[in-house]
Design a protein around this nucleic acid. Structure first.
Length: 303
RNA sequence: GCCGAGGUAGCUCAGUGGUAGAGCACUGGUCUGAAAAACCAGGUGUCGUCAGUUCAAUCCUGACCCUCGGCA
């Protein structure tokens, strides 16, 4: 039984989760594919924290699964799930309540619904596939796994490569190995979804982008000075490519902000679409949600 | 005021005598180890205004309005 606070970007989930955790003496597990990176603060809306006994802590609340990954590394769903499981067990062992907060829908679902036993990503195979064209890859997939080939458009290179990779590593089509256990079910948990009226959320995105812009420029400069580039995985996070273009003088500040706002809006839309699938979520209006209200519902729900 | 260029989708623009398209934006959706990713689908329009020519005008003609250059 965990508390989950989810919502689109700029919905205010981090602050609410911190308040909730503070009140009940819980600890937060971030479910955010970008806050894992060290060095990204403003651009990922990661709350400023300090290290207390090696644990990232915000206002006294332990905030796990953030700020640990070097910028050049790539993280993935499977790694997140296994690492977070360990942390959750430790929190429960202390008789504390884990509060999951984040907007990476796939990670959340993988964590609570569970993934099928599929092989890990294989960099060697990916490199091999990358040398082929989209059409070639899709054709190859169709020859070994027609069901996957029909389900995945040829243009979706990432999913085509993954399906092919699964077949090459196991000899079994991905469509056969997938049992359907990975579905829109987050288990018996208290699942809060922060909902905003679309225009209002868009305004928040615009305001926030303007506020964090200089901070993003500074942290990006710092990373570039350390030798990282536009190709570094962390710097491919939403908005950073535009910041780099601005630093390089390729676009104006106004153009960079406009582009980041658009990308963030589009991202928020994808999140809304993803979270729309869950039936058992408890929807809170983002403009009115408070930790007290959430905990009030939580206490009712527990009974 | 004169000369030139131009007014077509929210933006930038292409185009045709038989009422119109692209990219981006926008809307909806997909999602099993890259997910802040990668995709799929959808055209949303008084073609500046008015008049003329024509079977038919966004396109041709005229007037007017507006924008941007240049000259005054």
């Amino acid at each position: 039984m965990a508390i989950i606070i989810a919502g689109p970007t700029a919905s205010g989930k981090t602050d609410l989760a911190l308040d909730v955790a503070r009140i009940i003496g819980g600890e937060i597990i971030s479910v955010d594919s970008r806050q894992v990176y060290r060095g990204l603060l403003f651009g990922t809306a990661k709350p400023a924290g300090v290290y207390d006994g090696g644990v990232y802590t915000v206002g006294g609340v332990p905030y796990h699964m953030v700020d640990f990954l070097p910028p050049e590394q790539i993280y993935n769903t499977g790694l997140f799930v296994s690492a977070a499981k360990k942390i959750e067990a430790e929190i429960l062992a202390k008789n504390k309540i884990p509060v999951f907060a984040g907007g990476t829908g796939m990670w959340l679902q993988a964590y609570f619904s569970g993934m099928d036993k599929l092989p890990e990503a294989d960099p060697t195979l990916r490199a091999k596939f990358s040398a082929m064209t989209k059409a070639q890859l899709h054709q190859k997939l169709a020859s070994v796994d027609i069901a996957s080939a029909e389900a995945i458009p040829a243009g979706n290179i990432q999913r085509v490569m993954r399906a092919l990779e699964i077949f090459e590593l196991t000899g079994i089509p991905a469509s056969t190995l997938r049992t359907g256990r990975f579905n829109a079910n987050l288990g018996d948990n208290f699942f809060v979804y922060l909902d905003w009226e679309k225009d209002e959320l868009n305004r928040r995105i615009e305001t926030r982008t303007n506020l964090i812009f200089d901070g993003m420029v500074n942290e990006t400069r710092a990373l570039l000075l350390r030798g990282f580039t536009a190709e570094t995985p962390a710097l491919k996070s939403l908005g950073y490519p535009q910041i780099i273009d601005f630093i390089d003088g390729k676009i104006t500040r106004a153009a960079a902000i406009e582009k980041i706002v658009i990308l963030t809006r589009q991202y928020a839309k994808r999140q809304r679409t993803w979270f729309a699938r869950y039936k058992n979520k408890i929807i809170f209006n983002g403009a009115q949600a408070t930790a007290e209200k959430i905990l009030g519902e939580y206490n009712k729900w527990k009974k």
